[in-house]
Design a binder for these strands. Structure first.
Length: 692
DNA sequence: GACGTTACAGTTTTT
DNA sequence: CTGTAACGTC
């Protein structure tokens, strides 16, 4: 009956970590020490002990990790998972807010704003305050807003008070549009719990067993949210909370992650049981020694000794391609070769990069080499213009007050509502402190004399509103006469607005792009089909769908059909996106100074070099058997060339972290062509002495 | 008024 | 490659 045999399948510390269900537990789990496995076993063990699914909450860092966790638990326990909660902090916040947000004065159909939507709103807020948008870095300002919202900065203390009014405008906009930004998804649940103890009590009674993965990357507000749920409400009360982390893998401090949470945890939850997992099951000793050599240069760490039973291992190979396209070709050819010679599957390979912009060259090489691959990260599928357009329609159908999305589509495709009409609507909305939709409603049937400026565009507005209302009825209304699925409705909508013609005219110079974008929409629709035809999906309707996709960013493409090729696909992703994953063979591309460590990161502060080093450490430890590192001699700096003849390429220097890898582990491959510059020769003489 | 053309700027990492 | 602002045309 019992499928679980934890004694036989786990080592001592792992067993301890799995079976210590009661009380606060801190698991320090080194890279490759079976962390994910331990959490999955732990949940399965709970289920076997008769703890109800609904009492368990597992918080992960990405949606991908959540999905993986769930499927492992399903496999281990052999049970159908119906009320088990495995999600990211943000999705968990959404889940709470969809239930309770009315107590905070929002409506349940709130929109969730991504970076782009948010920048748009910040831009409007600046304009509203009569400040120029030029010269303001919207990204930076967004960071300030975020820091104020989560309480890391106050106006006048770290946050320039000149923007306080803009922030007020921004917050007001969110409220009127019934929209939340990513921070709200954490801050509002906290507010809710603090202002409404009965709601907090409800969730606390429900979730009696809480686990947090990647604890080192938990931000302060995430920690507060967790604490509100987990803290014992009376002395000696229940607080079955288990956090798992590794300070060496903390790579999100720029997003507010604070590995000192580990110290806070020990303080806030007295009697913590600490368990260390130090045996690495993943990598060869070569790879592990290299990783240890690198990370030991960090001063700011708890310190632990990772060891592996897999002795030996192939050397790490370091190559110097000339340019990034040579690098890409090299990686593609090497993968092809290993597939043939060692009978590797495509999905045995992980190609790791520091920035999303590095994907393009590599993708091109993969296409040329005909390698099946998948990208996590980059311009995420859901960020593409055509996808955002269609989704904006769905968002407006779901929440008509969402001005940012409404503005995106009100005249896309062109329907004769131009700047002037929009400013009439905007003015009216401002006067009434209402959303644009509300203002349009007032204009729609009003006599011309009341709003003479709007007289001309009234027909167009009416037409647009009819369109939205028609689909709102179709999709949300009880009289869904045709009984169509969401995917069918979306298809009908795209036809109805004639998006295809819009693409053709918009990209008339390049029909291929238009066609490609149309295919993207097709694949969006297909992914909705896949999603709604999943038998586990009990409620395949608009709102659950919007919830789901709002929190998907990179790392997740559209839902794909079940059948993959038997040999899988090569994985191409940023190092950040690779956290928690492993591959038999790993390529680290662009191990150059300025890339790892990234120049922009070092600009911001001295402490960042350690974070960049941890990033490199994470990259190395993704590899099981074999690691390749490439470092180009020259790299294109800016994507933009003014002249075709100009070469916007600069010499690259080796990443300083490479010198931290013990030389005897590395097989060094000289570049095929020597560089012209004498100093470059010097440079390679130095590297050669390091690794030869 | 709407819309087409042009010039111009901006890419670290992610929920 | 995308989004914005400024200008000229219909």
């Amino acid at each position: 009956m019992s499928r679980l045999n934890i004694e036989a399948e786990l080592n001592g510390p792992q067993l301890e970590a799995v079976s210590a269900l009661e009380g606060p537990v801190l698991i320090i789990a080194g890279a490759g020490s079976g962390k994910t496995r331990v959490i999955a076993y732990r949940i399965a063990y709970m289920l076997e002990k008769g703890i109800p699914q609904s009492a368990i909450l597992a918080l992960t860092f990405t949606n991908k990790a959540a999905r993986e966790m769930e499927s492992r638990v399903r496999e281990l326990s052999g049970k159908k998972l119906q009320s088990l909660t495995v999600s990211t902090f943000h999705s968990f916040g959404v889940r709470i807010l969809r239930e309770e947000i009315e107590k905070l004065g929002y409506r349940k159909n709130f929109s969730i704003y991504d970076e782009t939507d948010r920048n748009q709103l910040i831009r409007d807020s600046l304009r509203e305050c009569r400040l120029s948008v030029d010269g303001v870095d919207l990204y930076k300002l967004g960071q300030i807003f975020s820091n104020v919202k989560i309480g890391r900065l106050r106006w006048g203390e770290g946050a320039d008070s000149g923007f306080e009014r803009v922030y007020g405008e921004y917050q007001n906009g969110l409220k009127v549009y019934n929209a939340l930004d990513f921070d709200d998804l954490l801050v509002l649940p906290i507010q809710l719990f603090e202002e409404h103890p009965e709601i907090r009590g409800k969730y606390r009674t429900r979730y009696r067993y809480i686990m947090v993965d990647e604890f080192q990357d938990t931000s302060l507000i995430q920690y507060r949210l967790m604490r509100l749920l987990a803290e014992a409400d009376s002395p000696g009360g229940n607080c079955n909370i288990c956090v798992v982390g590794d300070d060496d893998q903390s790579i999100y401090s720029w997003r507010g992650a604070n590995y000192e949470n580990i110290l806070m945890f020990e303080r806030d939850f007295p009697g913590v049981r600490e368990i260390k997992l130090e045996q690495n099951y993943r990598s060869t000793t070569t790879i592990l020694e290299a990783a240890n050599g690198v990370i030991s240069n960090n001063t700011n760490r708890k310190g632990k000794t990772l060891w592996s039973g897999n002795t030996g291992g192939k050397p790490i190979e370091l190559f110097h391609p000339q340019t990034e396209s040579d690098e890409a070709d090299f990686i593609a050819r090497r993968i092809r070769e290993l597939c043939l010679r060692e009978r590797r599957n495509y999905d045995d390979f992980g190609v790791l990069i520091r920035t999303n912009s590095m994907t393009r060259a590599i993708e091109e090489a993969f296409l040329a080499e005909n390698l099946p691959y998948q990208v996590s990260g980059g311009t995420s599928f859901f960020q593409r213009k055509e996808i955002k357009d269609i989704l904006s329609y769905l968002r407006v159908i779901g929440n008509a007050d969402d001005d940012v999305n409404l503005l995106r589509i009100i005249n896309t495709p062109r329907r004769g509502i131009g700047k002037t009409m929009i400013s009439v609507i905007t003015d009216l909305a401002r006067k009434n402190h209402s959303s644009l939709w509300d203002a349009m409603g007032r204009l729609r049937y009003a006599p011309d004399t009341l709003f003479p400026d709007a007289a001309k565009g009234r027909a167009e507005i009416d037409h647009f509103m009819n369109l939205i209302e028609f689909y709102r009825n179709e999709i949300l209304g009880s009289q869904n006469r045709k009984g169509w699925h969401l995917s069918q409705q979306v298809r009908s909508l795209t036809d109805n607005i004639d998006y295809w013609s819009y693409l053709m005219s918009e990209y008339s110079k390049n029909e291929k792009i238009a066609h490609w974008k149309f295919l993207n929409i097709e694949s969006l629709i297909r992914s909705i089909e896949t999603w709604e035809s999943n038998p586990d999906n009990l409620n395949p309707t608009l709102y659950p769908y919007l919830n789901r996709i709002s929190l998907i960013t990179s790392g997740d493409g559209p839902d794909e059909g079940p059948d993959e090729g038997a040999r899988g696909k090569v994985n191409l992703m940023t190092i950040h996106a690779a956290k928690g994953l492993e591959f038999p063979v790993v390529f680290i591309a662009g191990a150059e100074d300025g890339i790892i460590p990234h120049a922009r990161s070092l600009e911001e502060g001295d402490g960042n070099i350690e974070e960049e080093r941890r990033l490199f450490y994470v990259a190395i430890t993704r590899a099981r058997d074999k690691l390749f590192i490439t470092s180009c001699l020259r790299r294109r700096r800016a994507q933009f060339q003014k002249q075709a003849g100009d070469e916007p390429v600069a010499d690259s220097r080796l990443s300083p972290f490479l010198a931290e890898i013990p030389g005897h582990l590395v097989e060094y491959h000289e570049p095929e062509k020597a560089l012209d510059a004498a100093e470059a020769e010097d440079f390679f003489a130095r590297i050669k002495s390091q690794f030869a």
